[in-house]
Design a protein around this nucleic acid. Sequence first.
DNA 1: CGCGTACACAACTATTTGGTTGTGCAACGG
DNA 2: CCGTTGCACAACCAAATAGTTGTGTACGCG
Lengths: 111, 111
Amino acid sequence: MTTDELSLVFAALADPTRRAILERLARGDATVNQLAEPFAMSQQAVSKHIKVLEKARLVQRTRSAQSRPCALDAVRLDAAAGWIAEHRRVWADRYDRLDEHIAQLRGRDSG
Amino acid sequence: MTTDELSLVFAALADPTRRAILERLARGDATVNQLAEPFAMSQQAVSKHIKVLEKARLVQRTRSAQSRPCALDAVRLDAAAGWIAEHRRVWADRYDRLDEHIAQLRGRDSG
DNA sequence: CGCGTACACAACTATTTGGTTGTGCAACGG
DNA sequence: CCGTTGCACAACCAAATAGTTGTGTACGCG
């Protein structure tokens, strides 16, 4: 089950290792070995995580000689953020905080 | 693993049944049986899903006689949206779409 | 008190997940 | 050609997930 797009995206995000991979990729494309290095984990395990991210369409892969660089794909992330924003909005009348939350995050450019 | 707050939230969101429960709760508090009704699933199964949502702190429960109404808790949802917004922002220079995405969602008040 | 309702806990099961090791294979360098 | 590097595929395993049925329990009603 949970094979719909949104479920795949949230499931992919539900792992610290995968989120760390995304954070790293947000700063530029990287090879599997580059991504694997910071983790106390085999290259194959990281490869599996990347595959999960690929299936969720959060990362795209290209070929460059013998390396397979990974790059981010933001569209699905938008879908996830969209779902939250949309449904959070329903009871936003009670208290509105997301806006200032995002404003804060946008504010700390130095972080 | 994946016991950190953010992982719990994303994992909780990674299931269509649980997202449907949240959508229903966004429209008002409900009892377990009320929540269970639309699903082809036992009351116990729904109870388990609610427990997952509770552990992720997406729902809060109260006591009201023999019923245990469920209510939404938006704080963690903000955290999830915040993570996405924060990290999406890093490569937002390439193309900026989340803002108009949210603007759109906020725009369709009738939806 | 005894019954029905609303819910939770426990045990069991199948499937998925997240990791391992071993190995194969394509691409480059000497 | 041969060795090294970069990565994927396969088999295997432990633990978590998502469901089931069965049962227990707290509350309210008559």
